[in-house]
Amino acid sequence: MTEVVETALPKVRGAALCADGVGIRFDSFQAVQNISLDIAAGEFLCLLGPSGCGKSTLLSAMAGFVTVDEGSLSVGGDRITGPDPELGMVFQSSEALFDWMTVRQNVAFGPRMRGASRAEQTKLADEYLGLVGLRHCADRFPGQLSGGMRQRVQIARVLANEPGVVLMDEPFGALDAQTRQVMQEETDRIWRASGCTVVFVTHDIDEAILLADRIAVMTAGPAASVKSVYPVDLPRPRDEDDPSAVELRRQLREDIGEEVRKALRDQGLDDASRDAEEDDR
């Protein structure tokens, strides 16, 4: 069980994030087009959709790593033109951590780059490691931790920079099912404790229902856009067997299934897929 240490952390001020008619191209390939989303300060939004629909591309643009070709992205009212301290990114792979640094040094890296004193670096690192339940691992190296623990270190490292928005790109995709469930519960707790805005990319419908305030479903790529946005009006912690959760799951599966079938048709694979299903019967 995670040992969470109570700290006197100030609640981070979540920042609003806005996408206005965003389009992103790579040479002649249109990855996404006409994406418009208004994400409120402190909101938890999940981007959900079939593989290849541009979820990660859009998230990278929100982080300032990818240039927008049409429209605009802004955080706190300021246009996003590149990486910004207001935007923190949690990657799918824990290889983003520095293996040659201890856990504490990893989390303190951002404050050190900002010019914080050594005492302030240590204080912030220990506070955020306490928030994610890993203060007892501060002097270990990433290679000595489990996958789930390394991802919690990533989250602590991002939060130590005190961003208004945390962007998470399928951060639990490489974890086993049991660890993934624990990390989903931990993410919900950490988000509520931190007060930051979260945009979370996933292809897992149940994960989105468990975590999100709203779920934005994207169409199949190329030239993907936002198909629909669902509010998740369920009390936290979420009960997956709640009738409202069951109905929302059904709607999301139908919505995404329609996009998957469209993608198969565009690739000329729909008939073959249907024939295979009939043969299995």
Rank of each mutant, 00 (worst) to 15 (best):
E3K: 08
V4Y: 09
V4I: 15
L9A: 13
V12F: 04
A16V: 07
I24Q: 01
A31S: 13
V32Y: 01
L37F: 01
E43H: 11
F44G: 00
G49V: 05
S51Y: 04
S56D: 13
S56R: 10
A61T: 14
T67Q: 13
E70W: 00
S72N: 08
S72Q: 14
S72H: 08
L73M: 05
G77W: 09
D78G: 11
E95P: 04
A96H: 09
F98P: 01
T102V: 04
N106M: 02
V107G: 02
A108G: 13
P111E: 13
A116Y: 04
S117T: 11
A125Y: 03
H136M: 10
P142K: 07
G143N: 07
Q144R: 13
L145D: 01
G148W: 00
G148E: 01
G148A: 03
M149C: 02
M149G: 00
V153I: 14
Q154C: 15
R157D: 05
L159F: 04
G164N: 02
V165R: 03
M168T: 01
A174I: 11
A174M: 14
Q178A: 09
R180A: 04
V182F: 11
T187F: 02
I190Q: 00
V201K: 06
D206M: 12
D206G: 12
E207F: 08
E207K: 11
L211Q: 01
V217P: 00
M218L: 15
G221P: 00
P222L: 03
Y230T: 05
P231S: 06
D233W: 01
L234Q: 06
R236M: 03
L248V: 01
R250E: 13
R253L: 15
G257W: 05
E258W: 09
E258R: 14
E259V: 07
R265T: 15
R265F: 13
G268F: 10
L269P: 04
L269Y: 09
D271C: 06
R274I: 15
D275G: 11
D279E: 13
